[in-house]
């Protein structure tokens, strides 16, 4: 499905590093493994004859469906990563994400309270980082994951400088 973007027109988006797909894959593998293993517990019990009353088809179906859904999510990951974008405008930063559930966020530089940079183990191994902006509102969930470390540092400096220049009261 060719989706019509909800972004304001005339914006060139900067995309995050393609290596971020690996980070997402690692996260996906870990959570899927854990979830499927947990849901396979009834199956093991039924096959060993410990839990006789539990229907076999259900014990098979639950992990199978979960696995299918997980595989579908797996197929979406590269597209989701490609859908993440950010753009620095004159007075605000735009962040977009999502394919089915799209979101375009505008954070004025003057509203930023502080900027965080974090990196998980997988991200660090790949030389990536996650940049997070904080405003006075808890609802501002402004995150740019999968930035190359150098780009992250540059963006942080840039944002801090611009924020200082345009800082406004609460």
């Amino acid at each position: 499905m060719r989706t019509e973007a909800i972004d304001p027109p005339g914006i060139t988006w900067l995309r995050v590093s393609p290596k971020y797909v690996t980070v997402r894959l690692a996260g996906w593998a870990l959570s899927t493994l854990f979830l499927v293993a947990l849901l396979c517990l009834p199956l093991v019990l039924v096959l060993n004859g410990v839990w006789q009353s539990f229907p076999l088809w259900l014990a098979v179906a639950v992990p199978a469906v979960t696995l299918l859904l997980a595989l579908w999510r797996l197929l979406l990951i590269p597209r989701q990563v490609r859908a993440i974008g950010y753009a620095e405008r004159e007075d605000d930063l735009l962040i977009r994400r999502g394919i089915f559930y799209q979101r375009t966020l505008v954070v004025p530089y003057g509203r930023m309270q502080y900027v965080d940079i974090g990196a998980g183990p997988v991200e660090r191994a790949l030389g990536l980082c996650t940049l997070k902006l904080h405003t006075a509102s808890a609802g501002t969930n402004a995150e740019i994951p999968g930035l190359p470390a150098a780009e992250g540092a540059r963006l942080r400096e840039q944002l801090s400088a611009r924020g200082e220049a345009r800082l406004a009261g609460l």
Partner: peptide, 18 residues
């Protein structure tokens, strides 16, 4: 002057109706 940040959001159903 009190707006902190803004976001546009759209789900699949909303996209169907633009």
């Amino acid at each position: 002057q009190r707006t902190q940040s803004m976001a546009l959001e759209q789900g699949p159903l909303a996209r169907r109706f633009r």
